[in-house]
Nucleic acid binder design. Structure first.
Lengths: 339, 339
DNA sequence: TTGAAAGCGCTAACAC
DNA sequence: GTGTTAGCGCTTTCAA
């Protein structure tokens, strides 16, 4: 697999590597290369099937044209979709993407950041894990171009793409109220991450604004690492209460799917016994016998925005932090009852 | 973001970069560096927070410690899961992963291969698209280390990881027969890809071996790019036939999910009206009111095997092609009726 | 219009 | 024990 280099072409053409470089990077105008010479070089390059060595180019330019992407778990369709849009948008700008999954784990996150940085990525797109504030703050002091997506830390002023979590949750819960539900439970993650807490706040405020006193006993928190068991407990408690929950709002996709699996085993009927609303879409929620009403995030737009903001930092050397907050859409289906 | 280099450390320590390099790559023994000197260098490196430049190292060594991964679509959980296991196994070997989605498109595939190769990946893991035989053959003649996964081309002797598609399909369909189904339809992709065709063959042979004459009218093919419409037509035809299908075998995950969505709209009951079996797992299939019987592929093992085979080529310079065929498991659930 | 050469950061053979 | 240096492939300044 002997690679052909500029030198090979130069030798073959009887010129210096400089000429070849100019021609092959389309700088012949600036360098005022002879027309025939240029053509000859191009011809030889074609004949030898020359492929530029990006590594060498990177070493020279200090640019790798690679973006590092850190998600919680690439096998989760939510992040898979984000990855996909980032990939496409990156490619459109001649960038490639290296990825890594943090598993919501601070140590893995730290590790990934340093691995990707060592690989000289030009910048990072990160869905930060709980407790990674230090890491993010450090990236900022190191002047590494980066942008957060999905999650963010309000106390650290950096660029991020997010949605209006509060309003989305507020609207979702308001819809349940409009459907006549009185005992509305919520299942979220036990986390300090702002996006989840904003969703809790939206839930809380929606109840209060509609004169339904929010009760702590209706808000359940599951641990990421003990999802299934915590969900079971939560749902059992909500259903076995004196006034059983008649509606459930899930803070994420995964919570909803695992929750519904358990709800199925209990023989609870949706929406007759229990109305359901959740954040995020998913095939499972479409195929469910009572298609689930959900908050649709503009994933494509978020991915594109993330790449654009990042490249602004990398290429245009923009210094200002960009905070982009997008709106969601409540997609109403059968799981809340008739409408 | 001024990066500190070996030279900075060397200057600070008053030694040559060579010494620093030896120490920091733990070659002090071979180079017989003084104990105090080594410690001093390490100390300075720590103080300056030295991070090696992988690009430079790669240029020198000709190794990038990066694997290129080409899947059909990273947002499809099947490929997301493959990507995840590959990521983990790669990391265990100090490799990172660059990925790209081919969308089952030959041109995108060619493009991706060349982009990743230009980025000097040390090798490729590819789920090849239909019609990419030339590309694969060329990789072989170029001596690029690579391994195919999921799909393969029987006529091109290269390394690949696959499952026993024929037997898996045979067993799945046999199960339907055992459940008393007589009019068993199959929906697959219209493709020349071997793995799908082996599944068709398994379907066909299972019918024949059980004295159910396979009829062409029961085997339906959908185009990847026109999935929904073709599925509709297929299912309509199967259900409106003189002898309507009483069971359906889907060749993939995506086909099953989209197919079931349509089946739901028709009010067809599973398994009473129509029994279902499919390849591949998925949350949607778990959550379906009649959990779907499916062929489970050993994705983790496949991913690991792919990385191992690839690294054998890269690191151990193995020349022999490795063909690994894994067994699947038929996970029986409600969608075929009682058992 | 073209060429020589420095240098990106690192490694390793070789010299002292 | 430690230093010098060539060179990985490419870009770009400066000189011719």
């Amino acid at each position: 697999m002997k690679k052909v280099s500029l030198k090979d072409i130069a030798t073959e053409a009887g010129v210096s590597t400089a000429l070849v470089s100019y021609v092959l990077t389309n700088k012949e105008k600036e360098a005022r290369i002879g027309k025939e010479m240029a053509e000859k070089i191009r011809e030889i390059a074609r004949k030898l099937n020359y492929q530029p060595n990006h590594i060498a180019r990177s070493l020279k330019s200090g640019r790798s044209y690679t973006i590092g992407l850190i998600v919680a778990d690439i096998s989760n369709p939510f992040f898979g979709n984000i990855a996909r849009t980032i990939e496409d948008e990156a490619k459109r700008n001649n960038y490639t993407v290296i990825f890594g999954s943090s598993d919501e784990n601070v140590d893995k996150s730290r590790d990934l950041i340093s691995v990707l940085l060592n690989r000289q990525v030009d910048g990072l797109i990160i869905t930060p894990t709980e407790g990674s504030e230090q890491q993010i703050a450090q990236l900022k002091t190191m002047n590494v171009p980066f942008v957060l997506i999905d999650r963010y830390f309000p106390e650290i002023p950096v660029s991020y793409i997010t949605i209006n979590n509060y309003q989305s949750a507020y609207d979702a819960v308001s819809h349940l109220i409009k459907m006549g539900k009185k005992q509305i439970g919520m299942v979220a993650y036990k986390t300090s991450l702002q996006h989840i807490n904003e969703r809790k706040r939206g839930y809380h405020e929606a109840l209060r604004d509609h004169d339904l006193l929010p009760k702590n006993s209706l808000l359940k928190l599951a641990r990421y690492a003990h999802l299934k068991e915590d969900l079971k407990t939560a749902i059992d408690q909500l259903r076995n209460a004196k006034k059983p929950a008649d509606a459930l709002f899930f803070a994420t996709n995964t919570l909803a799917i695992e929750g519904l699996k358990y709800i199925n085993t209990l023989g609870i009927r949706v929406p007759e016994d229990l109305a359901i609303v959740t954040f995020d879409e998913g095939e499972a929620l479409d195929l469910f016998y009572s298609p689930v009403t959900f908050v649709r995030q503009p994933i494509m737009d978020m991915g594109k925005a993330a790449v654009r903001v990042l490249l602004d930092q990398i290429i245009a050397a923009k210094k200002e932090t960009a905070v982009i907050c997008m709106d969601t859409e409540l997609v109403i289906r059968k799981s809340c009852g008739n409408h």
